[in-house]
Structure formats: C-alpha cells, structure tokens
C-alpha cells in the first residue's frame, strides 16, 4: 500500500484480551469491506484469538476486557513494559464495562451463588488504567471498528486523535431517528459521548451510555428532564450504572 509512491511504516500491533466477552476483538475482524486494507496497514504480531504467532515485539498494544484476577495484573504489566503505546479498547477496558456491576456484590456470596462451595479466585473489577498507565481509551460496547480504523490511521501518521466533543444526540438527529425520550422512553444520548453513529436509538433501544460521559454533560438538566417525563428513577439508576462510565453521577 503506497501513497504517492511512499510506503508508510506498518506499526507492529499486539492484541490482548482480559475479562470480557471478546466482542471488541471480534470487531477487529469485522467491517469486511475494509478489512484487507486495514490488515495491510498494520503488522499483527500477537493476537491469540486469530493467530498462533505470539511475538513480544509490538509497538502498540490493544487491550480489551477489564481486570478481575491477580494473574491478569501481572500479564498486563509485562505487556505495558513491551509496548510503546497502550490503548484500552472498549468499555470493559475503559471503565470496567458491564463487569463494573459486580463491584456492588459481596464476592464471597456471589461465589457461593454461582459455584457453591468450590471457591474461585476473583477481584473487584478494575479498568485498565486502574492497573497500568494507559495512553488512549476507546470506549464502546462493542467498540466501533470505524473509530478503531481512524485511530490506527492517526497512530500510523503520528497525529493526535480527537474524539468527537458532541453527545450521541447529534448523530442520532443526523440519522433522523425518532427520539426515544420524546416517546417517553429512557435514553442517555444527551449525556453520552458521540462517535458511534447512534445505532441503538435507530434500532429501537435508547442509548445506554456505553461510551461514557460526553464533554461537560449537563447531568442536572438531564435528571430533571427524566423526572419531568415521569421516568422510573430506579431504572434510570440501573442504566447509568450499566457500563461503569457514569460511576458517581448519582450520589
């Protein structure tokens, strides 16, 4: 792949998974129409889910999933030492994702509930930045492949990436989706960071906030609006806590 006759540097990339559903990794193999050029632009040296090759000479480490056991911290620290740039991919890696809901449980009780008397080692969920230094976070559950592509392009060119500074609502309006809030359904689009192209409201579900807070979200106005519209406040709390990105908003 050359532009004006000059071949770009192909960054060596390692992809590593921790606690999660591996849906984010799967996105890397999706978007089939541009998968060829994407693979030509990078050099995958380690990606357990798709290749038996397991090199340690990567420049960029893409991390998906969160941390929920001691051995994962050790593995992550080694990756941090090897990588020049470490990117947290997806909501699990960025905030803990749905696994964050585990943190309100009594772990001994949960263990008994699931495994009975056989104790299985586990920790409270941590995001990647709660364990090692993270250079960039790409939230989303799953992460948007289009956004990952854009970010990889920036990494190849060594140009800083700017996330959209508007909320999901903007992209939702651009798609002409019917507003769920107007229909009396809960939607977190007005306080959630855009960039996903608002697939959830278009598909018939409100935004559940998987990308975390938009810049300068107006929580007060949002909560007041939800109340005026007679939304179920217990359900609102459940939504805000769903992906871990809005922790602490409801005190």
């Amino acid at each position: 792949m050359k532009y004006l006759g000059i071949a770009p540097a192909r960054p060596k990339i390692g992809v590593f998974d921790f606690t999660g559903c591996e849906g984010c990794e799967l996105q890397l193999a999706n978007k089939e129409e541009t998968l060829g050029p994407f693979l030509d632009a990078i050099d995958i040296v380690n990606f357990r889910e798709v290749t038996t090759a397991q090199g340690d000479d990567y420049d960029i480490a893409l991390i998906d999933g969160c941390i929920s056991r001691g051995d994962e911290i050790e593995r992550l620290k080694k990756i941090r030492q090897n990588a020049k740039v470490l990117v947290a991919v997806g909501s699990c890696a960025s905030f803990g994702g749905v696994n964050r809901m585990k943190n309100v449980l009594d772990l001994a009780e949960a263990n008994t509930e699931v495994y009975g008397k056989e104790f299985k080692e586990t920790l409270y969920t941590r995001s990647i930045k709660e364990a090692v230094k993270v250079d960039l976070e790409i939230p989303g559950c799953p992460v948007s492949k289009a956004e990952v592509e854009r970010i990889v392009q920036h990494l190849v060119w060594n140009v800083a990436f700017q996330f959209p500074n508007y909320p999901v609502c903007l992209e939702c309006k651009q798609r002409f989706s019917t507003c769920r809030m107007e229909m009396g359904e809960l939607c977190l689009g007005s306080i959630t960071r855009g960039g996903c192209n608002a697939p959830c409201p278009a598909g018939g579900l409100g935004c559940w906030g998987c990308r975390g807070p938009a810049p300068a979200p107006n929580y007060k106005e949002f909560l007041a609006l939800a109340e005026r519209k007679g939304m179920d406040m217990q359900l609102l709390a459940e939504r805000l806590n769903f992906f871990g990105g809005f922790e602490g908003v409801l005190k």
Partner: peptide
C-alpha cells in the same frame, strides 16, 4: 476469570436482562 453474571442479574429489571446477557459472549 469468573464474571458472576447470574449474581449481577438479581434485582435487575426485565428490560435489562437481554441487553446484559448478550455481553456474556461477543460472538
């Protein structure tokens, strides 16, 4: 690593169950 989906589901609203359990598996 264990994720305790069943324990997390306790107390959740019915509209949450399907969206949450989808996250058991990305494939």
């Amino acid at each position: 690593t264990p994720r305790y989906f069943e324990a997390i589901l306790k107390g959740k609203h019915y509209s949450t169950a399907g969206i949450f359990t989808a996250r058991i598996c990305g494939i």
